[in-house]
Deep mutational scan, measured.
Amino acid sequence: MEVRTIKVFTTVDNINLHTQVVDMSMTYGQQFGPTYLDGADVTKIKPHNSHEGKTFYVLPNDDTLRVEAFEYYHTTDPSFLGRYMSALNHTKKWKYPQVNGLTSIKWADNNCYLATALLTLQQIELKFNPPALQDAYYRARAGEAANFCALILAYCNKTVGELGDVRETMSYLFQHANLDSCKRVLNVVCKTCGQQQTTLKGVEAVMYMGTLSYEQFKKGVQIPCTCGKQATKYLVQQESPFVMMSAPPAQYELKHGTFTCASEYTGNYQCGHYKHITSKETLYCIDGALLTKSSEYKGPITDVFYKENSYTTTIK
């Protein structure tokens, strides 16, 4: 009895394709271990004539594949690729409408935090270190965002349907971005203890939790000093293409032309909904596939993004 075979390709990165001759009487799992086709788990399936010449994702289970996976995804987590594939199996079914010149995501599976993050990423200057993220990001900007969303979920250790947080998501993504040249110098002034300067680099240099107003941050924000008295913390120097200011959701007025974009969060910790506000020729609110415009805006804002380049204080 002759062994019926077909020729397929296996890959971990969709760049390096490895030619395989597979036995049609055995499952993919018996031949390769966990195997995925377009995100779908085909591990328990036997090869079919229609699979001839198709590319299958496999887990990096030998040295060659491990090197290829690390170079593309910059992670050695053995569960990463499987999590990416199972997320992709959902995100490829989502709709990605162009809204006001940006790629958004039609609401499904509690994905409003991903839509808000995706919209924000198209408006701030950011370059990702893992080629996987950078490639998928370019495709997302062009309207094909399924891979990018699935990668975000995998890097953030999230599953489809789980509630997510924009600030946490951005923080994970910033860790995989090139923020080497970003720098922030802060000064804390206390009447009792004097003053202390701190220099922050990388992710810490672009994120701040405690106030939404970048102007206020430049002037000074009140913080408790270690001595128990009130101290003032203010920005001395900022070198970065953008800054992200966050605070627990509270009524906040966004003035046209003073910011790049913002995240609105309605609801409580267990259950809520994100919308995205962007400042173009007027203010726009993007909620999944829905767009509304207004000249002014007041609502429960939790993150505001500002364009920056270089700032030095005039406070002496």
Rank of each mutant, 00 (worst) to 15 (best):
E2Y: 09
E2S: 13
R4A: 11
T5E: 14
T5I: 11
T5H: 15
T5R: 12
V8D: 05
V8E: 00
F9L: 11
F9Y: 06
T11I: 06
T11E: 01
T11R: 02
V12T: 13
D13W: 08
I15G: 01
I15F: 15
N16V: 12
H18V: 13
H18I: 07
H18A: 08
H18S: 08
T19P: 14
T19Q: 15
Q20M: 09
Q20R: 14
V21I: 11
V21S: 10
V21Y: 11
V21T: 13
V22R: 01
D23E: 13
D23V: 11
M24V: 14
M24E: 15
M26R: 15
T27D: 15
T27V: 14
T27K: 10
Y28P: 00
Y28D: 00
Q30M: 15
Q31T: 10
G33R: 10
G33T: 01
G33V: 01
G33K: 01
Y36H: 05
Y36V: 02
L37T: 08
L37Q: 13
D38M: 11
G39R: 02
A40K: 12
D41Q: 10
V42M: 13
T43M: 10
I45E: 15
I45Q: 12
K46R: 11
P47M: 00
P47E: 00
H48R: 14
N49I: 11
N49R: 14
H51N: 05
E52H: 10
K54N: 11
T55W: 04
T55V: 10
F56K: 01
Y57Q: 07
Y57K: 05
V58Y: 03
V58Q: 13
P60H: 05
N61M: 14
N61Q: 08
N61H: 10
D62W: 02
D63E: 11
D63G: 06
T64K: 13
T64G: 11
L65H: 10
R66C: 08
R66H: 08
V67K: 15
E68C: 07
E68H: 09
F70A: 13
E71Q: 10
Y72F: 09
Y73N: 00
H74E: 09
H74G: 09
H74V: 01
T75Y: 04
T76S: 14
D77T: 02
S79H: 04
S79T: 14
F80A: 00
G82R: 06
G82K: 15
R83P: 01
R83K: 15
M85W: 01
S86K: 13
A87R: 02
A87Y: 03
L88T: 02
L88F: 03
L88N: 00
H90V: 11
K92Y: 05
K93P: 12
K93G: 11
W94S: 01
P97A: 09
Q98M: 13
Q98I: 07
G101K: 04
G101M: 07
T103G: 03
T103F: 10
T103Y: 12
S104R: 04
I105C: 02
K106I: 07
W107A: 14
W107C: 15
A108M: 07
N110G: 03
N111I: 04
N111D: 06
N111A: 01
N111M: 01
N111E: 03
C112L: 02
Y113K: 04
L114N: 00
A115L: 03
A115K: 02
T116C: 12
T116I: 07
T116E: 12
T116Y: 03
A117R: 02
L118H: 00
L121E: 03
Q123W: 00
I124P: 02
I124C: 07
E125S: 08
L126P: 07
L126V: 10
K127Q: 08
K127I: 11
K127P: 06
F128Q: 02
N129T: 14
N129V: 10
P131S: 02
L133E: 01
Q134L: 04
D135S: 10
D135N: 13
A136C: 04
Y138T: 12
Y138A: 15
R139T: 08
A142F: 13
G143W: 00
G143E: 00
E144T: 06
A146C: 06
N147M: 08
N147W: 05
F148I: 13
C149K: 03
C149P: 00
A150C: 03
A150I: 01
A150N: 01
L151V: 00
L151K: 04
L153D: 00
L153A: 06
A154K: 01
A154E: 00
Y155H: 04
C156G: 06
N157W: 03
K158V: 03
K158R: 10
T159M: 04
V160D: 00
V160N: 01
G161W: 04
E162H: 07
L163Q: 14
V166I: 06
V166A: 14
E168W: 01
E168T: 14
E168C: 03
T169R: 00
S171L: 12
Y172G: 10
H176L: 12
N178M: 08
L179A: 02
D180C: 09
S181N: 11
S181M: 10
K183E: 10
R184F: 13
R184C: 09
N187A: 08
N187E: 15
V189Y: 09
K191L: 06
K191N: 12
K191Q: 11
T192N: 15
C193W: 00
Q195G: 11
Q197F: 10
Q197V: 14
T199N: 03
L200K: 10
L200C: 15
K201R: 12
G202V: 04
E204W: 03
A205E: 01
V206A: 06
V206G: 06
Y208N: 09
Y208A: 13
T211F: 11
L212A: 07
S213L: 05
Y214M: 09
Q216M: 09
F217Y: 06
K219L: 11
G220W: 05
V221G: 04
V221F: 11
I223Q: 13
P224N: 15
P224L: 13
C225Q: 02
C225D: 00
C225H: 11
T226S: 14
C227G: 01
C227P: 03
C227A: 04
C227F: 03
C227H: 02
K229S: 13
Q230L: 14
Q230N: 08
A231M: 08
T232L: 13
K233Q: 08
Y234N: 05
Y234Q: 07
V236L: 13
V236M: 11
Q238P: 04
E239V: 11
E239L: 09
E239H: 10
P241K: 12
F242R: 05
V243Q: 05
M244Y: 06
M244L: 05
M244I: 03
S246P: 05
A247E: 04
A247F: 04
A247V: 05
P248V: 09
P249K: 07
P249M: 07
A250W: 03
Q251I: 15
Q251Y: 08
Y252C: 05
L254T: 03
K255N: 07
H256V: 12
H256E: 06
T258M: 15
T258A: 11
T258P: 04
T260S: 08
C261H: 06
A262P: 03
A262V: 04
S263N: 15
S263F: 05
S263A: 14
S263K: 00
E264M: 05
E264W: 04
E264H: 06
T266M: 05
T266A: 09
T266Q: 07
T266H: 09
N268Q: 14
Q270S: 15
C271N: 15
G272R: 09
Y274T: 05
K275P: 07
K275C: 05
T278S: 12
K280Y: 05
K280D: 00
K280P: 03
E281M: 02
E281P: 02
L283A: 06
Y284H: 09
Y284G: 06
Y284T: 07
Y284V: 12
I286T: 02
D287A: 03
D287N: 09
L290R: 09
L290N: 13
L290F: 11
L291W: 10
L291V: 15
L291G: 10
L291C: 14
L291E: 09
T292H: 14
K293S: 12
K293Q: 09
K293D: 07
S294F: 14
S295Y: 10
Y297V: 06
K298P: 06
G299Y: 03
I301K: 03
I301D: 02
T302E: 05
T302Y: 02
T302G: 06
T302R: 04
D303G: 03
D303A: 08
V304I: 14
F305E: 03
F305D: 04
Y306C: 07
Y306W: 05
K307Q: 09
K307G: 11
E308L: 14
N309R: 10
N309L: 12
S310F: 14
T312N: 07
T313V: 12
T313I: 08
T313L: 13
T314C: 10
I315D: 13
I315F: 12
K316S: 12
K316L: 11
